[in-house]
Design a protein around this nucleic acid. Structure first.
Lengths: 193, 193
DNA sequence: CACATTAGTGAACAACTGTACACAACGGTG
DNA sequence: CACCGTTGTGTACAGTTGTTCACTAATGTG
C-alpha cells in the first residue's frame, strides 16, 4: 500500500498502476502481491479505508484547535492545508479516486466526504453557529463547504509543495469561498424559498 | 479521438488507456496512431481542445435561453445537465483530467474552467445582476459557482443516465448550492472584510 | 521446542505493450 | 493524367504484463 501511494505521490495515476510495478516499488516479488490483495481494486479499497483515518485525524485536530468562532475558517483551512502537505500522496489518491475507474473506490471516497460533511454539521450545531438553519439547510451548507474544500485540493496538489506564495493564494481563496458560503447561510432564511 | 472517448465513456480511465487499445477500438492498425499523435498525452491535449468547444456550445445555449433573471439558475443547471447527458464521454474525460496524470491536460482543463468563470462574470455584469460587487468579488463568486457545478459533475457521472430520480435530486441540490452562493454574494459587502 | 499459519520466492507462460520500418492505398492539385 | 502529401497496412522485436504453481523463510502460539 505504501508503494502504491509512493507512486501516486510521484505523479502517476492510480488507474495506470500495475501489480508488477507496485511490487517492484515495494521491493518484493510480484507473486507476493496476491498474499495481501486480490487485485488492484482491492488495494484501492484498502487505501480508502486508510484515507478515512487520515481524514478523521484531521477533523480531530480541527476540533481541538478551533476555539474562537471568529478564527474558525482561517484555522480550519490552515489545518486542512497542513494535513494535505503532510499526507500528499493520500490526498492525491483521493482526488484521483473521485473520478477513478473503480466504482467501489469512487463510492468509498464519496462516502468519506459525506461522513465528513455530517460531522462538520454536528460541530457547527454544537458551537451554536447555525441556530437559525434547519437540519436540512445546515447539511446542505456543510455539503457545499466540503465540496469547495475538496475542489481546492485539486488546486493545492497542482502546485509544488514548496511554492509558499501559491499555497498562500490558495489558502486565501479557499477561506474567502467559505466566508461567502457562510454569509449565504446566515442570510438564507430571509430570502425565502 | 472518438475511440478514446468511447472507452472513457465505458468506464475506463484515460490514464490507463494504451495506444493499441485505442487503435483497436478505432478499427485501425496500431501504427496509424502515430500519423495523428505523438503519444497518449498528445491525444489528451487535443481532446481538451475539443472539450473547449463543447463547453462553449453549452455556454452559448445558456446565454440564448436565459431570458428572465428569476429563472436563471434553474435554466442554467438544466442546460448543464442536458449537455452532460448529451456529451457524457467528454465530461468523463474532463472529470478525470482534473486529477489526471498528464500535467498538461490538467492545466488545460483548469484553464477551460477559468475561462468559463470569466465569461460567466461578464454575463452577470451584462445582465446587471452583480452591480454591488467589485470585479474581484464577482470573479471570486463566479469561480466558486463553476467549481460547484464542476463538482456536481462528479455526482452526475456517478449515476446511470436513465436514473431520472437521482438526476433530479442532483439538479435540485446543485440549484440550491447556487442559490446559497448568490445569497452570499448579495449580502457580501454588508458584512465587511 | 515443535508446529501451523502467514509472507515471500523463483521460474514459467501466454498475452499484450510501444515503437520502428518499408510499403500500399488514397485524395486533391497542377 | 501524373504527382505528392497524407493516411493506413503488415511485419517484426524486445520488453512488460497478470497469473499459476510448487517451494522456502519467517512468525507467533501451544
Amino acid at each position: 500500500m505504501n508503494a502504491a501511494l509512493t507512486l501516486v505521490g510521484k505523479g502517476r495515476h492510480f488507474a495506470s498502476l500495475g501489480i508488477r510495478e507496485v511490487t517492484r516499488q515495494a521491493g518484493v516479488v510480484p507473486t507476493s502481491f496476491y498474499r495481501h490483495f486480490r487485485n488492484m481494486d482491492d488495494l484501492g479499497l484498502q487505501l480508502v479505508d486508510e484515507l478515512g483515518l487520515v481524514l478523521r485525524r484531521m477533523m480531530r485536530e480541527a476540533r481541538e484547535n478551533v476555539l474562537q468562532a471568529d478564527k474558525l475558517m482561517d484555522e480550519s483551512v490552515g489545518i486542512f492545508i497542513s494535513h494535505v502537505q503532510a499526507n500528499r500522496s493520500f490526498f492525491f489518491f483521493m482526488a484521483q479516486g473521485l473520478a477513478g475507474e473503480s466504482r467501489a473506490v469512487q463510492e468509498g471516497i464519496r462516502s468519506e466526504l459525506r461522513f465528513f460533511a455530517s460531522e462538520l454539521a454536528n460541530d457547527l450545531r454544537r458551537l451554536r453557529l447555525a441556530d437559525h438553519l434547519s437540519d436540512a439547510e445546515l447539511e446542505m451548507t456543510c455539503d457545499l463547504i466540503v465540496r469547495t474544500v475538496a475542489f481546492s485540493l485539486t488546486d493545492l496538489l497542482g502546485v509544488s509543495p514548496d511554492d509558499d506564495y501559491q499555497i498562500d493564494q490558495i489558502r486565501k481563496r479557499t477561506t474567502r469561498f467559505l466566508q461567502l458560503i457562510f454569509v449565504g447561510a446566515a442570510h438564507w432564511k430571509s430570502e425565502g424559498t
